[in-house]
Amino acid sequence: MVESKSISARIGRIVIHTIVITLGLICLLPLWNIVATSFSSSEAVTANAVGLIPVNFTTETYKMIMEDAQFWRSFGISVQRVFLSLIINMVLIVLMAYPLSKSTRVFKGRNIYMNLLIFSMLFSGGMIPTYLVVKNLNLLNTIWSLVLPGAVQVFSVILIMNFFIGVPKSLEEAAIMDGANPLQILVKVFIPISLPALATVALFSIVGNWNDFFSGLIYMTKVSNYPLMTYIQSLSINIEEMLKSGANANSLENMMEVSNKNLNAAKIVVSIIPLLVIYPLLQKYFIHGIVVGSVKE
C-alpha cells in the first residue's frame, strides 16, 4: 500500500494500532491469569488472591504434570487423533469441494450431493444411535472412534467449495487445454491457489479435534484411553452440581483432592502449547497467502 504522508493518516495509524494492541491485551488477560494461577500455591488460588502475578511462586504443578503418566498418554492419543483426522479431513474436503464447485450443468447430481451435505449438517440422530453404529463397527476404544465419525467436515467443504468457485475459470481451462484430468487440475491448479483457505480449514480441523472432549467420553470406556481434553474434563468437577443433586462425605473428599486448581491450570497451559506451536506454522499461509490473480470474468 502506498504510504500516506498526511497527518490525519498518521493519526489514523496510531488509532488503529492502539485499538488492535488493546484488543490483543484484553484477550491475553484470561490466559495470563491462568498461567499465573498455575505458578501459584493452591492456598492462594483458593483464597482467590491470584491476579496477573503468581502468589507464592511454585513450579510444583509442572513437576506433577511431568510425572503424570496418564496426562502424557492422553497427550499422545490426542496428537495421534489430530494427525489422522487432519489427513482424512483435508483429503475429503478437497475431494468433495472440487466437484461441488462445478455447476449442475457440468456435474450432474451436484445438487443432490449438496443437499445431502446440508441436511447432515443440520440433523443428527443423536448420541445413542451414533454410539450403536460405532460400537457395531467395533471401533469402541480405538483411535478410529475419534477420527472417523468426524471425517466429513461439511462446514469446511462448503467454505473451500466457495473458494474454488472464485478461482478464475481461465486457469482451469488452460489446464484442460494441456490435457489435464480433473484430479490433476485439482492438485495443480486449485490446491496451490487456495492455500490460505486450506490453511484455515486445516486449522479448524486441528483445533476442533484437539478441543473435542465429548466423543472421548462416549467412545472410550476407560480413562487410560481418554484423549487429553477428555482427561482434563474428567478432572474439572462441578462441585455445585454435585451438592445440589446429592453427595456423600467420601465423594466430596475425593473431589476436593482433585480440585487442585493450580494443577488444573497448569494442565490447561500445557494443553494449549501445541496449538500455539501449530498456529504460526499455518499463519504464514494466510498472511502471505498466494494472491488470486486479478483475472475476473
Partner: peptide, 10 residues
C-alpha cells in the same frame, strides 16, 4: 455410515 444411518434415532 456416521450421519445418515444414525438418523434412524430421530
Amino acid at each position: 455410515i456416521f450421519s445418515y444411518i444414525p438418523m434412524f434415532g430421530i
